[in-house]
Design a protein around this nucleic acid. Structure first.
Lengths: 206, 206
DNA sequence: GTCTATATGGAGATAGAC
DNA sequence: GTCTATCTCCATATAGAC
C-alpha cells in the first residue's frame, strides 16, 4: 500500500473512532510514523483527506445503486442494495457525522455532494417506479411521494442515528434494526408477490 | 436583556447561519461590542455556550411533550405536539448540526443527552399506547416497534435533513413537508376516528 | 517522495488591572 | 462585570536537505 492510501486508511480509522474534529493531521502522521511535512505533501489541507474519502464513498455508492438496473426488479434485490448501502455508510460512518464541518462548502458549489444528491434521488425514484411496474409495490401518487421522503431520511440518517446513540453496537445488529424497519415500511405497500420477495430477503439474511 | 442572555441569543443566531465551528468566540464578542475576555467571564469555554443553548432546548422540548398528557389523546393533538417540537428544533437548528462536535462528550457521561433521550423514548411510547387505547391507532406489537423506530429517526433528523439539503427553504414549507410525511405514516395505522382526527389537523393548519 | 525545521495566523483560554 | 494583554495550541504553508 502506498503512503497516500495508508494515510487515507488510517485517517478513516481514526475519524470513525474519535470524530473528525478530534483527529489532528499530526496524529495521523505520528501513528503512521510519517512527518507532518510529508502529510502536507500528500494532502495540503486536512479537508482534502475528508474530500477524498467522501469521493471514494460516493463512487462506491453510485456503483452499488447502478447495480439494481442489471437484474430483475424485486424487493429482495432492492433490500440487498440498501443493505450494501448501509454497510458502506457504516464503513465511512465518521464522515457522515463530520458533515457539518463541510456545511458551508456544500452550499458554495465547491462540493460534489449536491450533484450526487440529485443522482441518488433519481436512482431511488427509478427503483420505486420499476418496482411498481414489476408489481412488487402498489403505489398511489401520494404513496410515491411519501415513500421517497421516507427513503431519503432513512438512507441518509439511519447510520448516523446508530452511530450517535449506540456507538458500540455491532454492525450486524445495526443493520438488522434498520433493515427490519425498512421491510416493515415496504410491507405496507407490497403486493402479494412483493411480500414474498421481502420474506425471501429476510430468510436469506436473518 | 443581560449580557449573558445577549451572548446566548447572538450565538444561536450566528450558529444557525454559519454552523458552530464557523462561529468564533471573538466574532460573537465583536458583534455585541464585548471584549473576548468578557466572553470568557460568562462562558469559560466555547462549548459552554453550546451546552446552555442545548439545555434550553431540551427543557422547552420536555415541557412540550409533557403537555400531551393534559388533554384528550387524539392524533390531532399528537400532531400539534410534533409541530411544536419541529418548530423548536428549527429555532435551535444549528445546534443539531453541531452534534458531532460533542460526540465524544455524549459518550463520556458528562452530557445530559442520554438521560433526555430515555425520557423522550418513554414519552413517545406512552403517547403511542394512549393513542392505541383511545382507538385512534390500531397497532400490533410489531407495529409499535416499527412506529417507534420511525418516530425516533423522524423526530431527530427531519430538521437536520431540511437544514442540510434545503438551507434556504422557509420554515413553513419545511414543517409542511415533514408533517405531511408524518400524517401519511400515521394514516397507515389509524382507525376511522383516527383518520378524522388527522384530517382535522390538516384542515386546521394547511 | 520523504524528511527536518520553521514561520504564520487564528482559535480558545487565562491573568490581572479597573 | 468588563477590560487589555498574553499564553498555548494547532492547522497550514514554505524552504531546503536527502
Amino acid at each position: 500500500m502506498d503512503t497516500r492510501k495508508k494515510i487515507l486508511h488510517k485517517a478513516l480509522q481514526l475519524i470513525n473512532q474519535k470524530g473528525f474534529s478530534e483527529v489532528g493531521v499530526r496524529e495521523i502522521a505520528r501513528s503512521l510514523q510519517l512527518s507532518p511535512g510529508n502529510m502536507s505533501y500528500h494532502f495540503p489541507r486536512k479537508e482534502d483527506i475528508f474530500t477524498e474519502l467522501m469521493d471514494n464513498y460516493m463512487q462506491a455508492n453510485s456503483e452499488n445503486y447502478a447495480g439494481f438496473g442489471e437484474g430483475a426488479p424485486t424487493l429482495k434485490r432492492y433490500l440487498e442494495i440498501v443493505q450494501k448501502a448501509l454497510q458502506l455508510q457504516y464503513k465511512y460512518r465518521g464522515l457522515f457525522l463530520a458533515f457539518p464541518y463541510f456545511f458551508g462548502e456544500i452550499h458554495t458549489g465547491r462540493s460534489k455532494y449536491p450533484a450526487t444528491y440529485k443522482k441518488r434521488k433519481n436512482d431511488i425514484l427509478q427503483i420505486l417506479t420499476s418496482l411498481q411496474h414489476a408489481r412488487q409495490l402498489q403505489l398511489k401518487k401520494s404513496d410515491i411521494d411519501f415513500l421517497f421522503s421516507f427513503l431519503s431520511l432513512f438512507g441518509r440518517f439511519s447510520i448516523i442515528e446508530a452511530f450517535m446513540l449506540h456507538r458500540n453496537r455491532k454492525e450486524a445488529d445495526i443493520l438488522k434494526h434498520y433493515l427490519t424497519m425498512l421491510m416493515n415500511q415496504l410491507l405496507l405497500f407490497a403486493t402479494a408477490s412483493g411480500k414474498r420477495s421481502i420474506n425471501e430477503f429476510r430468510k436469506a439474511y436473518f
